[in-house]
Simulated scan of single mutants.
Amino acid sequence: MARATRTGLKAMMAAGALSALLMAPVSTAQADDSQVVVFAAASLKNALDAINTACEADVGEAAKISYASSSALAKQIEEGAPADVFISADLDWMKYLSDKNLINAATEEQLLGNRIVLVAPKDSTAEAKLEKGFDLAGLIGEGRLAMGDVQAVPAGKYGKAALEALDMWGSVEGKLAQAENVRAALKLVATGEAAAGIVYATDAVAEPEVKVIGTFPEETHAPIIYPVAQTAESKDADTPAFLKCLHTEKARKLFEEQGFTVLAPVSN
């Protein structure tokens, strides 16, 4: 895939720095096994941070949450990272771990749904009609299209599928600024390093420096589903309580405030 030069290189450096920041909690989690350790897709950060605070009294402790791309987190679990809960942004990376018997199958379920959107910096005047025939490459011009790594990051894979379905992929493939996770891609747009970006609708809600200029039709990509499960090696006795709290009415409200669709049943 084509990578950015000059401006694009600066963009990649910014993405890398943000990815490092998002990954930072992993070492903290490894150092403290007295709390529930959650590995969660980067796009969940705002909602899950709020839920973690709201659920602390029910669980008896605040969880340690590490955010990164689902692919990176799954590989860390495979390599022995001490996670109790994994929340992926797609079904593929949960299956990857399940196939290796690294997930407690009895606890796995589909938790959330999402959408992918096209965003631009908040002061942009661009508008996009995301259908066949729309000139996305023209909208980007000499700039870059930020998105997650199309080979590994769920948002990147969904985005590539949508672009291919709309016959846009060939015209923008050489304009990509691929990031290690969707929040890093979002940051490239928010800082003006990229002219536009493909992120989740929930990311756009969380970042005031971008605006949505188009929503990809749902039929252009696989359904966006976030599964959750306890890991097979989970040792923390409070893990079931944390999973239970994800199903409460207060958790549902916080997920929906960030734009997620709650797929799992809500309990008291």
Rank of each mutant, 00 (worst) to 15 (best):
E108K: 13
A54M: 07
E209N: 14
K122F: 07
M147T: 09
P265I: 06
P265M: 11
K235G: 12
H247T: 03
T191G: 06
G259W: 02
R3L: 06
F86P: 00
F242I: 02
K187T: 12
Q110R: 15
A185E: 13
T5P: 02
F39N: 00
K45N: 05
D49H: 07
I198N: 08
A57V: 02
A128T: 10
K157E: 00
T107L: 02
A24V: 09
E56N: 08
T261I: 04
K211T: 06
S43I: 05
I65D: 03
I225W: 08
M147K: 11
A42V: 11
I198Q: 08
K10A: 10
D49W: 09
P208M: 01
K10Y: 12
A137M: 01
Q110I: 00
A4L: 15
S71V: 04
P82C: 04
T239I: 07
P223H: 02
E142I: 04
R144L: 11
G159T: 10
A162H: 09
K129S: 07
K157F: 00
A126D: 13
I103V: 11
Q76P: 01
A241H: 12
A72T: 07
V153P: 00
A29L: 10
A83H: 05
A50W: 01
G159I: 12
T220H: 06
D238Y: 08
A237T: 13
S171P: 03
E256N: 02
I87G: 00
L118A: 09
P217C: 00
L102R: 10
L188R: 12
E257Y: 10
P240D: 13
P240I: 13
G159R: 15
S71R: 05
L44Q: 12
S66N: 09
R3I: 03
V205K: 15
D84H: 02
D149P: 00
G8S: 09
W93L: 07
L21R: 14
P208G: 14
F242D: 00
A161I: 13
E233L: 09
I116V: 15
R115V: 05
A4R: 15
